[in-house]
C-alpha cells in the first residue's frame, strides 16, 4: 500500500515556508523552526502514531539556513523524501535526508544570493527607478507587483520540482547547464548595474584653477578658468563616480572591509575634500 500526500497538504507545507522561513530567526538556528513548521502538516498526514511523528519531526531539528526563496526547493525535496520514507523505503533515514539538506544549503545560498538579491532585484529596481524619477508611484508599484508575482511563481515551481525529483534534484542544481545559465544571468546584472551607476551616481569636483586672463577675438579681457570637472568629463563622462565605485570595491574586496567601515572612510573623504575645496555642493537656503 502506498501513501500519496494530498495536494492540500503539500500546499500547506509550501505556504508555511513562504510566510515563515525567517520569522523566528536567531543566529543559533536561523531557518530551523521555519523548516519544521513547513514539515508539520506533512508529518501529521503521513504518520498516525506519535513515535513516528516524533522521529520525523526530529529529523528536521539540525541547523538550516540558505537563501530562503530558492531554498523552497529543499523543502520540496524533503517533502518528497518524507513521503518515500513513509512508504517503507528503508534507505531513506535521518542521515540521508540531512545529508541532502546540508549538502544543498551552501550551494543554493550562493546561487540564490547571486541571482536574486544580486541580479534580479537590482535589474527590477533599476527599471523601477527609471519609472519613478519624477516622483511617480509607478516604479514602486511595478516593482512590488512584478517581484512578488514572479517570485511566488518561481518558489512554487521549484518546490514542486524538488518534490518530484527528490534526491535527484542535486544534479539539476549543480549541473553544467545550470552553472552556465547562472554565469550568464550574473553577466546581465553586472552590465545593468554599470548603467545604473552611471545614471544615478554624480560625484563631481568644484575645483578650478585661475589661469589669469586672456583677450578673446573681440579684444575683450576674459578670465581664463580651468574647471577640473570639465577636463575629467572630456576624458570619460562621469569619471569620478566610476573611480569612487572602484575605490569602494577595492576596499571591500582587497582590504576585506565591511560596508560600514567603507561608509566611515567616505565620511573622512568627504570632510577632507570639503576642507581642501575639492568638493563643494555650492548650496544656500
Amino acid at each position: 500500500m502506498s501513501v500519496k500526500l494530498n495536494k492540500k497538504t503539500k500546499d500547506q507545507a509550501f505556504w508555511w515556508w513562504y510566510n515563515g522561513n525567517l520569522t523566528g530567526f536567531t543566529h543559533q538556528h536561523m531557518q530551523t523552526f521555519g523548516f519544521m513548521c513547513a514539515m508539520i502538516p506533512v508529518i501529521k498526514e503521513l504518520y498516525k502514531d506519535d513515535t513516528h511523528r516524533l522521529r520525523s519531526l526530529k529529523t528536521y531539528t539540525p541547523f538550516f539556513n540558505t537563501e530562503p526563496q530558492i531554498g523552497s526547493m529543499v523543502v520540496g525535496i524533503s517533502v518528497g523524501l518524507e513521503e518515500a520514507r513513509a512508504n517503507g523505503h528503508e534507505e531513506i533515514d535521518d542521515e540521508m535526508i540531512n545529508g541532502i539538506r546540508a549538502g544543498l544549503m551552501g550551494p543554493l545560498a550562493g546561487i540564490g544570493d547571486s541571482l536574486i538579491p544580486g541580479t534580479y532585484i537590482p535589474i527590477l529596481l533599476s527599471i523601477a527607478l527609471g519609472l519613478s524619477t519624477d516622483g511617480s508611484p509607478l516604479g514602486a508599484i511595478f516593482y512590488a507587483v512584478v517581484y512578488i508575482g514572479t517570485m511566488t511563481f518561481f518558489m512554487k515551481y521549484i518546490f514542486d520540482k524538488g518534490y518530484e525529483l527528490g534526491g535527484r534534484a542535486v544534479d539539476v542544481v549543480i549541473g553544467e547547464q545550470a552553472t552556465a545559465f547562472r554565469e550568464s544571468m550574473v553577466m546581465v546584472g553586472t552590465i545593468v548595474i554599470g548603467s545604473l551607476a552611471a545614471s544615478w551616481i554624480g560625484v563631481s569636483t568644484a575645483l578650478k584653477f585661475d589661469l589669469g586672463t586672456y583677450y578673446n577675438a573681440a579684444g575683450e579681457q576674459v578670465a581664463n578658468v580651468l574647471r577640473l570637472q570639465d577636463t575629467l568629463n572630456g576624458i570619460f563622462p562621469n569619471l569620478l563616480s566610476l573611480l569612487t565605485v572602484l575605490f569602494t570595491w577595492y576596499l571591500m574586496t582587497k582590504k576585506k572591509m565591511s560596508p560600514i567601515t567603507v561608509m566611515l572612510i567616505l565620511v573622512v573623504v568627504a570632510l577632507v575634500g570639503v576642507l581642501i575645496g575639492f568638493f563643494d555642493p555650492g548650496l544656500s537656503y
Partner: peptide, 28 residues
C-alpha cells in the same frame, strides 16, 4: 548651508551610492 558640516553631509550623500554598487561588484 555653507558651513563645513552641511557641505560634508551633501558631499557624503553623493559618494554613498557608490558603496551599494561596490557591494554588488564584490559579489560578482
Amino acid at each position: 548651508m555653507d558651513g563645513i558640516p552641511m557641505k560634508t553631509m551633501f558631499t557624503l550623500g553623493s559618494l554613498l551610492p557608490a558603496v551599494g554598487i561596490g557591494i554588488l561588484l564584490k559579489q560578482v
